[in-house]
Design a protein around this nucleic acid. Structure first.
Length: 218
DNA sequence: TTCCTGATTGACT
DNA sequence: GTCAATCAGGAAG
């Protein structure tokens, strides 16, 4: 442990439940390096997703696919996925190989590399640049083709807070169906931190579609 | 093969 | 508050 109050974990650190690890990631420093420069984020909000078919909200619930394969591999690696046709989100893989649990990085504050993050995301205060899982990957410059990378090796880097800040828990954001709601209170965020995303309940396209009635012939 | 949904965001009313 | 954008995965036929 360094005098700065941060320490670099071993891969073994991640070989346990995502629910156990998620709160320990609050306040951690995540580094990502590209040709354009380096951005350092301070994690303010995460969500845990479990494997072994125990979590209906998890991508791994129905077993291994081409997309979620990294979740089933080595803990301490990065699972990056593409969603909604345009967004990229990043997770840290947890638990022993074959378990497929992970922690979604939902929000962070930009600590270093502010000009670079602003070049990617537009002018905004550091607290807003990475507030949201897809915003976070854009601000840090994390790309889909980095899926499966080691979170503890270049171009990534991770330093955990020796004393993680006080966190709160609640239902996961945007998770519909059985995996959502109070039954799975696996969202963790830093109490009172402005760089935490806004809670939105899950929405379904079907509900929207019903709002557009077919043309009447009356 | 077709159709629907989704661990989201930003623009618009 | 409401809704479109846009594509991969998964269920159903």
């Amino acid at each position: 442990m360094s005098a700065s109050g941060y320490f670099v974990p071993e891969h073994d650190f991640f070989a346990r439940s995502a629910v156990e690890i998620a709160p320990l990631l609050l306040g951690a420093r995540l580094t990502h390096e590209t040709d354009a420069g380096t951005v350092v984020l301070r994690l303010t909000e995460v969500e845990a997703y479990l494997g072994n078919g125990s979590d209906p909200g998890s991508h791994a619930y129905r077993g291994r696919t081409r997309r979620n394969g990294v979740m089933f591999d080595e803990p301490g690696h990065v699972y990056v996925y593409f969603t909604y046709g345009m967004h990229v989100c990043a997770n840290l893989v947890c638990s022993p190989p074959g378990t497929a649990s992970a922690v979604l990085l939902r929000a962070a504050e930009v600590m270093e590399g502010l000009p670079l993050a602003q070049a990617r995301r537009g002018e905004a205060p550091p607290r807003d640049l990475a507030r949201g899982p897809a915003r976070l990957t854009v601000a840090a410059g994390i790309r889909l083709d980095e899926n499966g990378s080691d979170a503890l090796a270049t171009p990534f880097g991770l330093e955990l807070a020796a004393r993680p800040p006080a966190g709160l828990t609640g239902p996961r954001v945007g998770v519909s169906g059985a995996g959502g709601g109070e039954a799975y209170p696996w969202r963790f965020w830093i109490a009172g931190d402005p760089a935490v995303s806004v809670y939105r309940a899950a929405t379904t396209r079907g509900a929207r579609r019903l709002r557009t009635p077919p043309p009447s012939r009356g």
